[in-house]
């Protein structure tokens, strides 16, 4: 075997050992001492590349994608793509829509599938408020919300969309588009309100707003999540809800911190008048996130402190 081909095989084997099997670079180099000089820099770079660009989707995102797939599978089982067309027609013609909710869900799913299959949703996912595909992005968001059955999933979607609004605000800030920032700020507040409604029904905020948000500087620590005490061995719906609340709390906490970073970066490029608007928007959003995080610590009972 030519020397080069041999080295390529060694490099390939080491990449597998280090990146897939968790072996150390040193252990791999020890196995091929004759190639150490050539192998080491490339192997270390492979590790660096992987570590620098590695990205794991949030569990909530995977949950949405999973639900989307399972729904499509179910739909396919009940309405196979190919079959007796006469029977399909009869089934369609005489089927009864059992409830209004199902009708909405079915039409929303159809809209989502239509949009997704046309590629419009994927194409619109990175769109910004001043771009033509942005309404598609927002329609897809509403469709997904309508398709989310349990309140936990809805709350996580609202949290994801709130984070998107933050990202869009930062993008609009760098363009100095005050009108869009204002609209997005209102949408962000709406999403955060919806999180409260879906995840914390019947609660009212307990944290007073600062009298002067304009004085706001970048914030201090975020309260950690302290789970409520559960009886030993307790299982069931409440335990599941507890885990969901913990996940949502962590999600909101990281979104709030990410918001600081996004706005810091945006602040560098934003024109001067927009900077002030952005600072105020951040102050207000920070308080609302904080309120939500604090709400998660309160007991579920209706008594007020």
């Amino acid at each position: 075997m030519a020397e080069n081909a041999m080295f390529l095989q060694v490099l390939d084997a080491c990449v597998d050992r280090v990146l897939k099997e968790g072996d150390s670079v040193e252990a791999c180099l020890a196995s091929y001492p004759e190639h150490t000089e050539q192998l080491e820099p490339l192997l270390r770079l492979a590790v660096q590349t992987r570590q620098t660009l590695d990205y794991a989707p949030a569990p909530s995102t995977a949950a949405v994608a999973r639900a989307r797939l399972h729904r499509a599978i179910q739909q396919r089982e009940t309405h196979p793509p190919r079959g007796n067309s006469r029977r399909s027609f009869q089934r369609f013609a005489f089927a009864r829509v059992h409830s209004y909710r199902w009708a909405i869900v079915a039409s929303t799913a159809a809209l989502l599938v239509l949009l997704a299959s046309s590629g419009a949703v994927a194409a619109s996912s990175g769109s910004q408020p001043d771009q033509p595909l942005y309404p598609v992005k927002r329609t897809a968001e509403r469709a997904r919300l309508a398709l989310a059955f349990d309140q936990g999933a809805k709350a996580r979607l609202h949290a994801t969309y709130a984070e998107r609004r933050v990202k869009e605000m930062a993008a609009m800030a760098t363009k100095g588009d005050s009108r869009q920032i204002e609209a997005l700020q209102s949408d962000l507040q709406g999403s955060l309100r919806q999180i409260r409604r879906t995840a914390l029904p019947g609660r009212v905020p307990v944290v007073a707003r600062p009298a002067d948000a304009g004085r706001y500087t970048f914030p201090g620590p975020v309260p950690p999540y302290v789970p409520r005490m559960m009886p030993r061995g307790y299982q069931g719906q409440e335990a599941r809800q507890g885990a969901e609340a913990r996940e949502l709390h962590q999600m909101l906490q990281s979104h709030m911190q990410l918001m600081e970073l996004r706005f810091r970066l945006a602040m560098r490029d934003a024109p001067e008048p927009t900077k002030e608007q952005l600072r105020q928007a951040l102050a207000s959003a920070h308080v609302e996130y904080q309120e939500l995080l604090v709400e998660f610590q309160r007991p579920a009972s209706p008594e007020r402190r």
Partner: peptide, 21 residues
């Protein structure tokens, strides 16, 4: 683009389902 990557990855499975036959 992380957001678009998540959307596209979800689309991969729907596209696969369409062509599973």
């Amino acid at each position: 683009d992380a957001g678009a990557a998540e959307e596209l990855a979800s689309d991969v499975f729907l596209r696969a389902l369409e062509g599973i036959d």
